[in-house]
Design a protein around this nucleic acid. Structure first.
Lengths: 159, 159
DNA sequence: CCGGATTCCATTGACCCCCATGAAATACCC
DNA sequence: GGGTATTTCATGGGGGTCAATGGAATCCGG
């Protein structure tokens, strides 16, 4: 498997360490990046994390703006300066920085949410709320879609 | 690691020395440039710093303007004439010049901000303000991205 | 000799690596 | 199928290492 899928919740220990879910570790290992590249999400109180594939997306975004332009520096300040590379220990754990813990509101548990080429790091309660909201929005959007009845708003997938 | 990523804040000692963050030192070592090339940023009260890769970008920028043109001379005045090469001591520290300290408003602490091919040197408070501004700018730019609303207001790449 | 700069050394506190434990899932054998 | 052995994983802790910092010693030009 080479994509981040599914959701896992693990505990932080007394030293602030938390195990990256084994399936995610496998993806990171295949990706080849040494460490875990993390940056804050813009719209939620969560963190995006990944490896080389994720970094590649960030580089592509930056490459669209010329060096030394104000926008380039704005973007690189947020996308590079405001991100962190967490070290993964031999047991597959990372220590979340204070910045990450504060931003995401993480106390003693962490939820890892697979998103194909990256995954997100959440405080479990906040993620639950976000997931419910996302689902509601998706439903509303489908209601507004012309012809949505052909598929039906609530068939099959339960989440 | 071959890019400047993340943000670090270190203290100046009584002699005006400050440690370059170890991850940045590693990038500089790989880059091969002996010392730290510094020049004032064009748009903020901060300093751009880096090694050979950074200097290469400056050359590329200057090459876009015809020699002897006013714009070329404006740029080279700042990017070359107003630049300094700081010496890195055996413990990975530099002494910031008075010019740099005055321009950036640095007193006793320095914030180093990774920006991939270069990093910036800030007075910590000023950087905090700039970081917030940068994040707002990124939000604005993303709003303008075509297709970012495909599913809902806050889906898609947040980083 | 003197002041400034540069190199060397020491301390301390955080981080990283190794090992141990227990639980759960899987494989294996009867 | 049932029961057991084995592996995989999440979690807990201890000790060594490295980086940031402060200060002393040395070198240099005046």
């Amino acid at each position: 498997m080479d994509e981040f899928v599914s959701t896992f919740t693990n505990r932080l220990d007394a030293k602030g360490r938390v195990s990256i879910p084994a399936p995610f570790r496998a993806v990171l290992a295949k990706d080849g990046f040494d460490g875990l590249y993390c940056c804050q999400t813009l719209d939620q109180q969560a963190v995006d994390a990944g490896g080389n594939l994720f970094r590649e997306r960030i580089r592509e975004l930056l490459a669209r703006y010329p060096a030394f332009s104000p926008d380039h520096d704005y973007l690189s300040t947020t996308l590079a300066g405001d991100s962190e590379i967490l070290k993964i220990d031999p047991d597959g754990r990372v220590v979340l920085s204070d910045k990450i813990r504060d931003y995401a509101g993480i106390a003693d548990q962490v939820t890892f949410v697979g998103q194909i080429y990256k995954f997100q790091i959440w405080e479990p309660q906040r993620f639950n709320a976000y997931r419910d909201e996302a689902k509601a929005r998706l439903r509303a959007l489908r209601q507004a879609e012309p012809g949505h009845r052909a598929v039906s708003a609530d068939s099959g997938a339960s989440g």
